[in-house]
Design a protein around this nucleic acid. Structure first.
Lengths: 150, 150
DNA sequence: GCAATTTTGTAAATGCATTTATAAAAAGGA
DNA sequence: TCCTTTTTATAAATGCATTTACAAAATTGC
């Protein structure tokens, strides 16, 4: 059964193993992640934070919890993120007074990051909100949905 | 056991139910999604496409597969995305000659989207690459990892 | 028919994520 | 020591994702 002249339909089954985008696991991951991030961003907005800002703030708090010195590079390694990305987000958090960046004494290139008192307070305020959201978000999915492991 | 004066450690367990960011499901989702997108973007780069551009291109192909007329709004509804977002990505795909946007006759506000011949060819080229990547990515996770359903 | 509302799309702005290029400090090797 | 390489961070640029504001066409209600 070949296509006739003038048939402008796309031979989907010859191109894809899936019955449309909604059946593709990558597509579902993208869609699900955006849904999660959208909802969390909406919850964090009243606190003046975005989801990535909250993640970086929380990670900074975690890594410095015992008073350790932590460089931006150490944050990037821990998060498996680009140095530049951390720099970008940290500079906004510093602008907003939640995070402090000071040059290291041992390494003049490095910048040590730490929470400001306002940063600590914000984190304590926001953490229960974010964790309650995650609790409900990840508990709500029906068992017949696509599942992922990371 | 109260904190002594000068103790600058963060009372993490009082703030979070998790042992650090890596134990939080939301954090793991964010991290996993970025890893997936980063790898896929690297694979698509030689084809001049990003992951979202590929997704929109493929969705356009899917929705118009039988010759149907599809508006940008219909795309946004199908993808559960903002119509502005579709507009942004579609305009880049049009600029690159992969997608055609023409005003609808029935509704002068709406723009009908369809693949150009170059868009069809690109899609046929890229689809196996993206699907093979997804296959390996989602098959590779160990069973002791955090799992998600969407 | 006509005014009010809704729908469709775009412009501009903000922040996320990455890439490329650059500068400066540290580390390593002759 | 001096020179090369690596490491840490930033500036600028591109594209993703969303928000606000806006214009124009379609729909609704009278």
């Amino acid at each position: 059964m070949t296509k006739v002249k003038g048939d402008d339909s796309l031979p989907w089954r010859e191109m894809s193993r899936y019955d449309g985008p909604q059946s593709s696991p990558g597509f579902v991951l993208w869609h699900g992640f955006m849904r999660w991030q959208r909802h969390l961003n909406a919850l964090l907005k009243p606190f003046g934070l975005t989801q990535p800002q909250f993640a970086v703030l929380a990670t900074c708090g975690w890594l410095t919890r015992g008073g350790q010195e932590v460089t931006q590079q150490a944050m990037a390694d821990f998060l498996d993120m680009d140095r530049m990305h951390i720099s970008q987000i940290a500079s906004r958090l510093e602008r907003d007074g939640l995070l402090c960046r000071s040059p290291s004494v041992e390494d003049m290139r490095a910048k040590l990051v730490s929470l400001t008192p306002a940063g600590r307070e914000k984190l304590a305020e926001v953490m229960p909100v974010a964790e309650a959201f995650d609790e409900s978000f990840f508990a709500g999915a029906a068992p017949d949905r696509t599942s992922f492991r990371f």
